[in-house]
Simulated scan of single mutants.
Amino acid sequence: MTRILPGIIAMAAIVVASNILVQFLFGQWLTWGAFTYPLAFLVTDVMNRVYGARDARKVVFSGFLVGVGCSMVGTQIAGEFGPLVTWRIALGSGLAFLTAQLLDVAIFDRLRGGAWWRAPLVSTLIGSAVDTALFFTIAFSATLAFIEPANDVSWAGEVLPILGFGPASPLWVSLAVADWGVKIALALIALVPFRIIVRRLKPNLA
């Protein structure tokens, strides 16, 4: 456990920071948390490459527990429009994180024998797509309103052009598309620190 402690600390820091920064808007479609949360995939992939899938999953589960704790705290803090974290958001966040990160670990492990960049890139792209789809659907889709009937998310169902210029869809779809776009960009950028960190920790693996 000691050898993956830096990974656990990094994952916890990312989860806590993202839970705080998601409260602050960045433009019309994003929050600042959209720029910190994808770093969780970088941490998972580094742990996977250096220490293997088993230890990477331990880091994921530690991040999940921290995320649950943040959500529980958020449900007890009143904001301008109600609790900072609704039960739908808490459920969506937890399920999306755990599912996407474990999927990332599995895909990375399957592809680890190829070119150095293939496993982190493919696993992150697929994992982040699943993460985005699960979170925004669970948290904001009108079809899942039964999860928390008292939580009014009708604002997320307002029909608008996607990102202001695409076909008409509920607002939450635009939020999801913008979020995934950031994840794609960061997945490509993260290949640089991934390569550097792995080379320093395990030169023979890079």
Rank of each mutant, 00 (worst) to 15 (best):
D45E: 03
I20R: 03
S18H: 06
M1K: 04
A145Q: 12
I189M: 12
F26W: 12
V43I: 10
L111G: 03
R112L: 12
T124I: 05
V153A: 11
A187M: 12
A139P: 06
R3E: 13
N19F: 04
A106C: 04
G74W: 09
R57I: 15
A106F: 07
L65E: 09
L5E: 13
F26R: 01
T99M: 11
P6K: 11
G181A: 08
N204C: 03
A40E: 02
P161D: 10
A106K: 15
L186W: 00
L42S: 00
M11S: 04
A53H: 05
L205K: 10
A129C: 14
F41H: 02
S128M: 14
P193I: 01
F41Q: 02
A206C: 13
Q28E: 11
T44Q: 00
A168H: 13
R199H: 13
R54E: 15
V85F: 03
A96V: 11
L121Q: 01
D109Q: 14
G82N: 12
W87I: 14
P170D: 08
G164R: 06
K202M: 08
F41R: 01
V50G: 03
W29Q: 08
F140L: 06
A129E: 08
D45A: 03
P83C: 09
F41L: 04
G7D: 08
A12N: 15
G157Y: 11
T99F: 06
V59Q: 05
R3S: 10
P161L: 09
K58V: 10
V59G: 04
A40M: 07
S169C: 11
L91A: 07
A139V: 11
A119V: 10
F35H: 09
S71H: 03
V130L: 14
A133L: 15
G52Q: 06
L103V: 15
V60I: 15
L30R: 02
W117S: 09
S128P: 03
A176H: 01
G157Q: 13
G82H: 06
P161V: 11
G74P: 03
V46Y: 00
L125T: 02
I20F: 05
L134W: 07
G94P: 00
D104Q: 15
I9E: 06
R54K: 12
T137C: 10
F140G: 00
T36Q: 05
P120E: 06
F41M: 06
R112V: 08
A13Y: 02
A185M: 13
P170H: 05
L91H: 03
G113K: 13
I8N: 02
F64K: 10
